[in-house]
C-alpha cells in the first residue's frame, strides 16, 4: 500500500432523522481501498455496512467527513462534476430483481449509463451492450429484447453487473450481491465478479453479512458493529487471529470442518442494541464476553496493533494490549 489509495474515507458520519430523532447510521468511519484490491465489509444487518457503501457513492451525501476518490473530494463536488465521477464509481445491489426496472427492456437498462453519459450513437451503444452482456455470460441475442421478469435471480444479477460494467468503472460497491440468491448460484456470481475484476481491472468493496462469502473473495476484511468499525486486517490475518471479540464471535458462527481450532470466545448472544440509543463507551460491551468497567466509560480508539491490522478494542485478543 505504498501508492495513493484509490478511495480514501476519513471520519465519515451519516445521520438520519426518524420519528423526529436524529441518529447516526455510521459514525467516524475511516478506511482506504487500494487500486486493484477487494475490501470485504462484514457485519450483522443494520450495522451500517450498506450506509457506508452508499456514502461512498454520495447517496446520500455523508453528514460529516471526507470521501476522496482518485484524489477528488466527493462530498463537496458540484452535481454536474459528480455525474462525471459516477461513471467510474458503480454499485450493485442485493436484490437483483428490484434493481431492474420491470417495465424496461434489458437492452435499455444496460445501455442507460451510456445514454446518461451522452453517447448518442445508437449502434455504438448496442455494440457495447452486446459486448458487456457476453462478458457476463448472457447471450445478447436472447437477452436484449426481454424484460427483467423473464429472468432468474442469478441472471438478473448478471444483468446488473453488466450495467455496472458498461462504463468501465474503477470501483464497484457490491452491496450484498449474492445474499438474495440460491447457494448454488452464489458461487457462479462470485466467480463472475472475480473474472470481471481481472478483465476490467476493478477495485471492489464487497459488502456482506456472510463471513464465509467474504473470506474467499477479499484481500482485506473490515468488520462493522452498530455503525462503527471494529476491526480491519488482511483477510488471512483476520481469519487466523481476530483481535476484536466481536470478530471472534462472528468467526465462531462460520461452520467449520476442522475441530479444535476454536477460540475461547463463545458464539454471539444477546440482542443488538438500538442504533437510536447506542451503549456508552464501547458499543459492543453489552454483548462482549470480556467487557470490563473501562469499556462502559471510555470509547476505544480504532488503532493499529500490528502492521495493517486495526482494531477498536481496549483488550484485543491478539497483538498488543491497552
Amino acid at each position: 500500500m505504498s501508492q495513493d489509495p484509490l478511495l480514501s474515507i476519513q471520519d465519515v458520519t451519516v445521520e438520519y432523522t426518524t420519528q423526529g430523532k436524529r441518529f447516526a447510521a455510521i459514525s467516524g468511519v475511516t478506511f482506504d481501498i487500494a487500486e486493484g484490491e477487494t475490501l470485504g465489509l462484514v457485519g450483522e444487518s443494520g450495522c451500517g455496512k450498506s450506509t457506508t457503501g452508499r456514502a461512498i457513492i454520495q447517496l446520500p451525501r455523508p453528514t460529516r467527513g471526507t470521501v476522496q476518490f482518485e484524489g477528488t473530494e466527493l462530498t463537496t463536488l458540484p452535481y454536474d462534476q459528480m455525474r462525471q465521477i459516477r461513471q467510474r464509481l458503480q454499485i450493485i445491489f442485493q436484490d437483483p430483481v428490484s434493481s431492474l426496472n420491470p417495465r424496461r427492456k434489458v437492452k435499455d437498462i444496460v445501455a442507460e449509463p451510456l445514454v446518461i453519459a451522452g453517447i448518442s450513437d445508437k449502434a455504438e451503444r448496442e455494440g457495447r451492450v452486446r459486448e458487456v452482456l457476453t462478458a457476463v455470460g448472457m447471450d445478447p441475442d436472447i437477452t436484449m429484447e426481454r424484460r427483467p421478469h423473464q429472468f432468474s435471480g442469478g441472471q438478473c444479477q448478471r444483468i446488473c453487473i453488466a450495467r455496472a460494467l458498461i462504463m468501465e468503472p474503477k470501483l464497484i460497491v457490491c452491496d450484498e450481491p449474492v445474499s438474495a440468491l440460491d447457494v448454488s448460484v452464489q458461487a457462479q456470481i462470485l466467480n463472475l465478479l472475480e473474472d470481471m475484476k481481472e478483465r476490467y481491472g476493478l477495485t471492489l468493496l464487497f459488502i456482506s453479512h456472510d463471513l464465509a462469502v467474504v473470506k474467499n473473495i477479499s484481500d482485506r476484511v473490515a468488520v462493522m458493529y452498530l455503525g462503527k468499525f471494529c476491526e480491519l486486517a488482511s483477510s488471512l490475518r483476520i481469519y487466523e487471529a481476530p483481535a476484536h471479540p466481536y470478530t471472534a464471535g462472528l468467526m465462531a458462527t462460520i461452520p467449520t470442518i476442522e475441530a479444535g481450532a476454536q477460540l475461547e470466545t463463545a458464539a454471539l448472544s444477546g440482542e443488538i442494541p438500538s442504533p437510536l440509543n447506542p451503549p456508552s463507551g464501547c458499543r459492543f460491551r453489552t454483548r462482549c464476553p470480556i467487557a470490563q468497567d473501562k469499556c462502559a466509560s471510555d470509547e476505544p480508539q480504532f488503532r493499529e496493533i500490528e502492521t495493517g491490522h486495526f482494531v477498536a478494542c481496549h483488550f484485543p485478543l491478539t497483538g498488543g494490549t491497552a
Binding site: L59, R86, L89, S98, S99, N101, P102, R104, E112, R163
Partner: peptide, 28 residues
C-alpha cells in the same frame, strides 16, 4: 426499489428518473 437508486448511482437526473424509471411503472 433499487432500480431508482441504481439510476441515481449512474448519474441520472431527477427528471430522467421520474420520466424514464418511474413514469412507466406509475402510469399503469
Amino acid at each position: 426499489r433499487e432500480f431508482v437508486m441504481a439510476a441515481r448511482a449512474q448519474g441520472a437526473s431527477h427528471l430522467r428518473i421520474l420520466i424514464r424509471e418511474l413514469l412507466p411503472n406509475v402510469i399503469i
